[in-house]
């Protein structure tokens, strides 16, 4: 298992190299020249050349790429074109806000979505199930920014309970977290329901009932554990997405997180900021996927045995049949 994790960590290197190269090319071919913007539209050629040299954009893309990669390996993502601060410092100072928003929203959505999904599945065909499905369908389809605006209209402007934006008070976090969690909870509930419905029909569930096991243990031990395996993927990717910065939500509520930083970087054509934040998000996503895979192995012995194949074979040779 440890060997597997090390192997997976080493795989990060080519993935990250690839991503940073693609990002660099995409930025380069995107309209909007930072040199022209900074130098001004009527600048003289010498000034433009000077600005390009200052921003170190006067060299070919391949050279810039290698420079970026070698610096990134040292933990240096370059300096922002705009505020001249190291990108890494900015990212690290903003990441805690994004992480807090992501973590609480995902935990909240699991706490709402999972029980709802199980409830709907165990009451299939009843009006309770139909209501739950219909409600989650609406909530899944609802864009989170629209929900966010509705929430602001009702709770901030209408009732005056929560601040409209910012992070000054702890109550400021309620609306952004809730507006993210609602959509996540709905998709978790829908997936939990369909996984549960599939698992409940499995033969081993009948076996467990035929043993005389109580309905509670049948549902929560035998069925839920099996239904959770695909669900981990969903929850993990939601978390990965949220950690990458809930771009629109952070923008709406003026949360100084990673998402807001990325959007500002894009608007300002701030190459190091964009490169740095995309690279940071890629590393986070890769780590989340690795964690998901480890969680799979932890729950499902069939997957676990793939990682410790040699040991299993030894047992099979020693044992009978198999």
């Amino acid at each position: 298992m440890l060997r597997y994790i090390v192997k997976r960590l080493l795989l990060f290197i080519p993935i990250i190299l690839g991503i940073s190269f693609i990002v660099l090319i995409l930025i380069d071919i995107t309209p909007g020249d930072p040199v022209a913007i900074m130098a001004g539209w009527d600048a003289k050629p010498e000034v433009i050349a000077q600005v390009a040299a200052d921003l170190r954009l006067d060299r070919p893309i391949v050279v810039r790429y290698f420079e970026f990669v070698t610096n990134a390996l040292k933990g240096d993502f370059g300096k922002s074109f705009r505020n001249k601060r190291p990108v890494m410092t900015d990212i690290l100072s903003r990441f805690p806000y994004t992480a807090l928003l992501a973590f609480v929203s995902v935990v909240l959505s699991v706490l709402i979505g999972l029980p709802l999904g199980i409830y709907a599945a165990t009451h299939q065909y009843s009006w309770k199930d139909n209501t739950a499905i219909f409600a989650t369908l609406i909530l899944v389809s609802m864009p989170s920014f629209w929900l966010a605006l509705l929430l602001v209209r009702v709770f901030s402007l209408g009732l005056g309970i929560t601040p409209v934006s910012g992070i000054q008070k702890w109550t400021s976090w309620i609306l952004p977290m809730f507006s993210l969690a609602v959509g996540y909870a709905a998709s978790i509930a829908r997936q939990a329901r369909s996984n549960m419905l599939q698992v409940i029909r499995e033969d081993y569930i009948v076996t467990a009932r035929a043993k005389g096991q109580s309905e509670r243990v049948v549902i929560y031990r035998h069925a839920l554990k099996n239904a959770c395996i695909p669900l981990i993927m969903t929850i993990g990717s939601l978390f990965g997405m949220a950690l990458g910065g809930a771009l629109v939500t952070e923008q709406i509520f003026s949360i100084p997180g990673l998402g807001q930083y990325t959007i500002t970087g894009l608007i300002n054509v701030d190459y190091p900021a964009i490169q740095g934040s995309v690279l940071f998000m890629s590393i986070i996503s890769c780590s989340i996927i690795l964690l998901i895979d480890i969680a799979f192995a932890f729950i499902d012995p069939r997957i676990r045995s793939q990682y410790i194949r040699k040991k299993v074979k030894a047992i099979q040779v020693g044992g009978e049949g198999a």
Partner: peptide, 8 residues
Amino acid sequence: TALNPIET
């Protein structure tokens, strides 16, 4: 299919 795949 009669045995729970994730329990011993």
